[in-house]
Each structure stands twice: as structure tokens, then as C-alpha cells.
């Protein structure tokens, strides 16, 4: 079969994932975008591995497949921690909105107290 098909699908998945990361303000939904991007990476790796494009006679190290498995596993580990942090965020703030003001502990500090700037800023 033609390697262009899976590679195109990977490009589409990466683009869609990028859009998802940027367009979502719900933290968990943002994670969905990341998952799609990782999926795209996996698809590229598997495609490259299955068509032994890089080297004549195939890659003896099975780089494509092994890296895909690594990426999947790392992604799982990431998601676990990410969800825990998001839950903590939900507990402390009551929402999981990524566009919300994140920094709430320290009060806004006025700019440097140097007289020159103080005068100008009033």
C-alpha cells in the first residue's frame, strides 16, 4: 500500500490535536488534544517501521514499533498525573478553566518603586 495515506492521516491528527489543545479551555478536553497529537506521532512511527523506509532490509532494532510503545506508555503515565493535578485544581478552584487567572496567591504588586517610573505611572 501507499505510505502516503497513513502519513497524511498522521498529519491530520496532529493538526486536529493542535487545534484541540488551543481551542479548549476545559483542562480535560485540552488533554484530548494532546492525546491526538501523541497518536499522530505513534502513527508516523508505526508507518515508518512497517514500510522499512529508512533502511534497506528493515530496521533490525524495530525502532518504530518500540518507540510507539514507549510513547503510549509515557502518555499513560502523563495522563494519570495530569488528571490528578486537574482534580486538585478542581478542588481548589471549583473549575478547570485554563484561561482563568491562574495566579491568585500573591496580590498584584505595583511596578518598581523607582521615582522616575512612579511619577509617570502616577
Amino acid at each position: 500500500m501507499s505510505p502516503a495515506l497513513p502519513l497524511l492521516l498522521a498529519a491530520i491528527l496532529a493538526g486536529v490535536g493542535t487545534y484541540g489543545v488551543l481551542a479548549r479551555r476545559h483542562a480535560v478536553l485540552m488533554l484530548i488534544g494532546v492525546e491526538l497529537m501523541l497518536g499522530a506521532a505513534g502513527l508516523i512511527l508505526v508507518t515508518v517501521g512497517q514500510f522499512d523506509i529508512g533502511q534497506v532490509g528493515g530496521d533490525p532494532l524495530a525502532s518504530g514499533a518500540v518507540l510507539t510503545l514507549f510513547v503510549i506508555t509515557i502518555a499513560a503515565a502523563e495522563i494519570v498525573v495530569a488528571l490528578a493535578v486537574v482534580m486538585a485544581m478542581f478542588r481548589t478552584r471549583g473549575d478547570v478553566d485554563l484561561t482563568g487567572e491562574a495566579q491568585t496567591v500573591e496580590a498584584e504588586v505595583p511596578d518598581e518603586t523607582s521615582p522616575k517610573m512612579g511619577e509617570v505611572l502616577g
Binding site: S2, A4, L8, A11, V46, Q50, D52, G58, A65
Partner: peptide, 18 residues
């Protein structure tokens, strides 16, 4: 991504041999 990948590998049929 699509542009560079397809440019590198092309549309030609290949054997699947993983």
C-alpha cells in the same frame, strides 16, 4: 507535516513488512 512527509515518501505502493 503532511507536506514534508509525503514529499519524502511519495505515493508509490510499497510492501508492508514490519
Amino acid at each position: 507535516l503532511g507536506g514534508t512527509l509525503v514529499a519524502a515518501y511519495g505515493w508509490s505502493e510499497r510492501e508492508v513488512a514490519g
